[in-house]
Design a binder for these strands. Structure first.
Lengths: 74, 74
DNA sequence: TAATATGTAGGCAAATATGCCTATATTTTA
DNA sequence: TAAAATATAGGCATATTTGCCTACATATTA
């Protein structure tokens, strides 16, 4: 198993999240509103700027109607 | 798809993490040392007290040598 | 091209996680 | 049972995330 550092992991995660958000037809703003998140958070997460919580990712998966494991499959 | 609130999710996640930690033969202390985490964090995560980051979970998966998706499979 | 929609950048205060610490409880082993 | 190992509880200072905000950049559409 290959080691992946935190920064590379967060960037890869964000890229994958963005892919699935678009596949489900959400803009960052729409997703943020449904989640009652601030819109800036979605942008920060997708760019790998911040290391968000597993609870937030679970909430995102619920709104996107995808299995949470899909968001970690990259 | 069933809605799972943050608290229930964190508790279920922690329970599953504990299961996989034990399957791999780690104590909380051993895991914390390898991760350079404080030991109290492992206990807090496994009990669902805190909502830790995806980066931390990735680091844990690396140390346990499990696919990160396994930790979200419950 | 021009207008509109979508996303990025960054400052700041408040909320939350984290590390470090001591003490206590629970579980496992001799 | 007694001792040792493992896990829980909680306080406190520091670090990080988050929401709210304004401004700017990029992409999409008329």
């Amino acid at each position: 198993m290959e080691y992946i550092d935190d920064s590379a992991f967060l960037i890869a995660f964000g890229k994958n999240l963005r892919k699935h958000r678009k596949l489900k037809g959400f803009t960052q703003a729409q997703l943020a509103i449904d989640l009652r998140f601030d819109i800036s958070q979605i942008s920060r997460i997708e760019r790998g700027i911040i290391n968000t919580s597993i609870g937030n990712i679970n909430a995102i998966a619920n709104i996107l109607k995808v299995d949470i494991k899909v968001l970690f499959d990259f």
